[in-house]
Design a binder for these strands. Structure first.
Lengths: 144, 144
DNA sequence: GGATAATAGTTCGCCAGCGAATGTTTCGTC
DNA sequence: GACGAAACATTCGCTGGCGAACTATTATCC
């Protein structure tokens, strides 16, 4: 039981390092890519910092920092919302979209390396188990 | 396939946060506990920084920082090796051992929460899959 | 309708970890 | 036996992220 967590931690760390070195070839960092990825997965290609922060399990302060970096690199731009002027929309720039696309290719190979040890059927089993654990955690956290 | 990695990352992050808040009650941080834990799991109750660094997947510089913190807190002490004077042995102090023991209790409950969603049999399945992925990564990394 | 609370984002100070460079000590080799 | 290479740990500068305090805007309620 304890082994499960330890092993997962190592696997995650391993894959993160592999991904980082792979992404370096495209000239982008892991946390930048991850943020762009969340943006792209949205229909509108944009989201508020709060939404991103919660999806990425990041503190608001940390999110601001990330967006700063991305904006300075020209991959993203901030747009103050008109209806609610407290809010800010983070929108993907064309440059950001291009870089995301380039990064997608190298990322896939880096991540595939880890799962390659398992048969397709086993991968499904694994995914199912992980999903159930996640769902259980989400629902357990709700009442708080 | 991509989902597997994403879910694992979230689970790991989740359990790390839960563990951190739990460990705070005992007055110890996650990275401190993790280091103590590695020390305790050794017969001699001590290890060199390099050994710890590789076991914890940490850079040498990061390891030095951790040991500094632990030493300042009196949980650990540095002993220069006599045979090889480049080496340093990190040894657990009585205080360190006590704190580790207290931390073990709260940690267990925090980590168990995550795995609780699965039946014992499923836990074994999961552990087996994870283990195989780890072994595969280790052996693949060897030739480099 | 004006005081008060809640919400969204940012700033500030701090910390753990990294990479690169450094100081020591030991090993290999000639 | 001396000298260059390798091994260990550390220092230094930097960076991403966090919590707490702050600002600005909107919602609530008497």
């Amino acid at each position: 039981m304890e082994a499960i967590i330890t092993r997962m931690q190592f696997l995650v760390k391993h894959v993160r390092l592999a991904k980082e070195t792979a992404l370096a070839e495209v000239g982008i960092q892991d946390f930048e890519f991850e943020t762009l990825h969340r943006l792209v997965s949205r229909d509108s290609r944009q989201a508020t910092p709060s939404e991103l922060a919660s999806e990425l399990m990041l503190s608001p302060a940390g999110m601001t920092g990330r967006i700063d970096t991305l904006e300075k690199a020209g991959l993203v731009r901030r747009i103050r919302s008109e209806e609610d002027r407290r809010r800010v929309d983070v929108a993907l720039t064309p440059k950001g979209h291009d870089l995301w696309q380039a990064a997608m290719a190298v990322r896939a190979t880096a991540e595939a390396e880890m799962v390659a040890a398992l048969e397709p059927g086993e991968q499904e089993t694994l995914d199912g188990l992980l999903k159930r654990m996640l769902v259980s955690l989400e629902t357990a956290r709700r009442p708080s």
